[in-house]
Amino acid sequence: MRVEKTLTIVNKLGLHARAATQLVKLAQTFDAEVTLVQGNKQASANSVLGLMMLESSQGKEVTVISEGHDANEALKAIEQLIVEKRFNEKE
């Protein structure tokens, strides 16, 4: 199964080191292969360095692509972390 969704980075600090680490930790709990695409750059959700190289600041749109038997669940969890929980940050 392959699902994808474009999300907007809403937290003030963007996809910085701690946010990227949270995303990798979350993605690791699923079997699905998750990739983030921003413009012409893409990164595996397994790589903190890769995610930091996206330079995703507040307001940027990233497409999350999730592939695997639990692709839906992985995508939902990641959407929740990025959009609803804003990486557990206040602003």
């Binding site: 600090l13 963007g14 910085h16 903190v48 930091m52 996206l54 330079e55 600041s57």
Partner: peptide, 9 residues
């Protein structure tokens, strides 16, 4: 600070 981080990464 994201730009610096991306360069280092």
């Amino acid at each position: 600070h994201l730009q610096t981080l991306a360069m280092i990464a």
